[in-house]
């Protein structure tokens, strides 16, 4: 399984890094969201009740980190669907003695891609004066949280792609993720949200991920346990979803 996973991961990474049409969109969106939101909405932290010590750039960085982690998985889902549409998946399915290795390969490649993209966003953040109050351990925990969310996104999108095997399934992969991401406290802390969006954000798992990331960036461990407590079982659940998707693809 290891050689299958590494072969698939190598191919995805090579393709992503050597073709600007794949590299750019995956990198552009987190950068645009970060610069656009952190730049334009910088005055938002003056709203009464907005209490986040590191500042609005860091506040938005946490969001973009979680958002890009999940969306990187969706991009991988597109790639899987395209592989099926173009027949390339057949090559993988015939050659791979253990087909679950294909899934692992896609997941590893997505993680690597996300880490690289996040490094770029982080560099831009530091360039525009973003403050990070967390220590090395906090940042390591942040990385683990991001990787877990990334895995959730990949497994979700892979499950859809493996079942439908068409790029027409793109919106089905993308839309639910987009929905849960933006129905979280993206722009202001959850306490400043009112009405239905507050109610939805309270039960939205992505709220926990974003708040966990914001805590770690602020040097606090508050919310972090909840974030991992939700993320890990969700990853396991979507792992099952992706594996049953793989079985569905095998049935043809």
């Amino acid at each position: 399984m290891i050689h299958v996973a590494s072969a698939v991961a190598y191919r995805v990474i090579k393709k992503s890094l050597t073709n600007i049409s794949f590299l750019l969109p995956a990198l552009m969106f987190p950068v645009i969201f970060f610069v656009g939101f952190a730049g334009a909405l910088s005055g938002v932290d003056r709203i009464p009740g907005f209490d986040y010590e590191p500042g609005y750039e860091t506040f938005q960085f946490a969001f973009v980190l979680v958002q890009s982690a999940a969306m990187a998985g969706v991009f991988t889902g597109f790639g899987i669907a395209q592989d099926f549409e173009r027949g390339f998946a057949r090559r993988l399915m015939i050659a791979a003695p253990r087909r679950s290795g294909i899934l692992v390969g896609y997941a590893i490649a997505t993680m690597i891609r996300w880490v690289l993209n996040t490094a770029v966003v982080l560099a831009i953040g530091l360039l525009i004066g973003m403050e990070i109050l967390g220590n090395g351990l906090d940042l390591f925990a942040l990385l683990l949280l991001g990787l877990t969310v990334n895995l959730i996104g990949t497994l979700w999108a892979a499950g859809v792609a493996l079942r439908l095997r068409s790029t027409q399934a793109g919106p089905i992969m993308q839309f639910p993720i987009f929905l849960v991401i933006f129905l979280a406290p993206v722009f202001v802390p959850i306490d400043l949200l009112t009405g239905w969006i507050h109610a939805v954000a309270t039960v939205n798992p992505f709220t926990a991920f974003i708040e966990g990331a914001r805590s770690l960036l602020a040097g606090s461990t508050e919310e972090v346990g909840v974030a991992f407590g939700i993320a890990v079982p969700l990853a396991a659940l979507f792992g099952l979803w992706a594996l049953t998707g793989l079985r569905s693809a095998e049935r043809g």
Binding site: H3, A7, V8, K14, K15, F88, R90, R91, A96
Partner: peptide, 18 residues
């Protein structure tokens, strides 16, 4: 069933690794 964005040698590498 070849990936248009990879080279012939990339495919050899992928297939061999698989």
């Amino acid at each position: 069933a070849l990936d248009p964005f990879l080279t012939g040698r990339d495919h050899v590498r992928l297939q061999a690794s698989l």
